[in-house]
Design a protein around this nucleic acid. Structure first.
Lengths: 203, 203
DNA sequence: GAAGATACCGACCGACTGGTCGGTTTGTCA
DNA sequence: TGACAAACCGACCAGTCGGTCGGTATCTTC
């Protein structure tokens, strides 16, 4: 037996497998035994790194889903003109995402619907991810309003809330229908709205 | 012991309790024992009326959630001018719904996120409810376009998809945040969009 | 009023769950 | 080199779950 010199790798492996399984079937339907089988680890190893199954769930949110969400939306949130970047981003989103990912739904939304009523720790962590996402978008849209690309009369916080709600809702619809078409349709109308908030470039 | 002369009442009781529990904590977290305790029935009675726990879930969707959704949206979907009715409906929705219901989320969306990846029967039944909702809304909007109240250039199916997606997403956001404010904000922006699709009444 | 169906009872069952713990191997450091 | 801790092993445990089944009481039908 070769002792693992980087126990951190074991921890990461557990989290990776757990994140995938949880995304696919949810937290409750993911058993500790499943994670063990998929990693090839023993129960002792797993419970050496995590005190409970719940803590694995927490860690998955904090160390996987939070980053995943931020990485996905980074091109928008870190752009100079968030509003102008948002439009082509949403328009092209359905092409950059594969069927499998879309049909598994948004991990944050999935977990939220499944767990937030059952465990306050889940709820708070998931809410934090969503709130940050929405806050960052709001701040970006405000900058675009000041920069003159977005209608200053619009409520930036409201638009951000709608974008997040519509996005998550559309992914959920597509997941349930197992069909990306409804996602594309919803986003098309959202884009139609956003374009109406666009201020033409003046010279 | 007094034999129940209306066994249908027993069945209804089971479904009522199950629907409430499932709405609150989800299907997996609702145990048969919970339902038994809440109804005061015996296990034998329950399994006399339903073959499996899963079938109780199916029946709850078909006999409770489907109707619930249709009843809630009937004022809009059965109106003469669906588009014009939709706007005040959405604007007033957050007042007609109590905190508890809003914070439990939409049953259809909750169950969809939790179960559609686990059981095809759940997925199909839930999809049917959502699809019907969306189709009815699409048809109504088309009528409003023909009637002249809604911009005929807009894509009715897309707008309907956005309304459903944004609505479900906004409820989910409010549930996770345990705060109706984000729901109100999202709906306000959705309304802003819808108003832009409104054709002024001509005389 | 006998026979059979319906409604219901609850003790019991096997499967599976998350979690424990005594033990073993391996690396580190004095 | 010996002591100690970290990493890991896996048999085992108590509890819960969905589901079964032999039985009983009540209603209906002939």
């Amino acid at each position: 037996m070769v002792r693992n010199t980087t126990p951190e790798a074991t921890r990461r492996k557990i989290l990776e497998v757990a994140a995938e399984r949880i995304h696919q079937v949810g937290f409750q339907a993911t058993s500790v035994g499943d994670i063990l089988a998929a990693t090839g680890l023993s129960k002792g190893a797993l419970y050496h790194h995590f005190a409970t199954k719940t803590e694995i769930g927490y860690a998955v949110i904090e160390e996987h889903y939070a980053d995943l969400n931020r990485r996905n939306w980074a091109p928008v949130l870190e752009a100079d003109d968030v509003f102008r970047t948002l439009i082509p981003f949403l328009a092209g989103f359905h092409q950059q995402i594969c069927d499998e990912t879309l049909c598994n739904g948004c991990p944050v939304n999935n977990l939220g619907q499944e767990m937030s009523a059952l465990d306050e720790g889940f709820r708070q962590r998931l809410q934090q991810v969503t709130t940050r996402w929405r806050d960052d978008l709001t701040a970006g849209l405000r900058r675009s309003q000041q920069g003159g690309s977005m209608d200053p009369a619009a409520d930036a916080a409201g638009v951000a809330a709608l974008v997040v709600a519509a996005f998550q809702g559309a992914v959920a619809l597509a997941k349930n229908a197992q069909d990306r078409q409804v996602f594309v349709e919803s986003m098309a109308s959202l884009l139609d709205y956003l374009k109406r908030l666009e201020v033409p470039v003046s010279h």
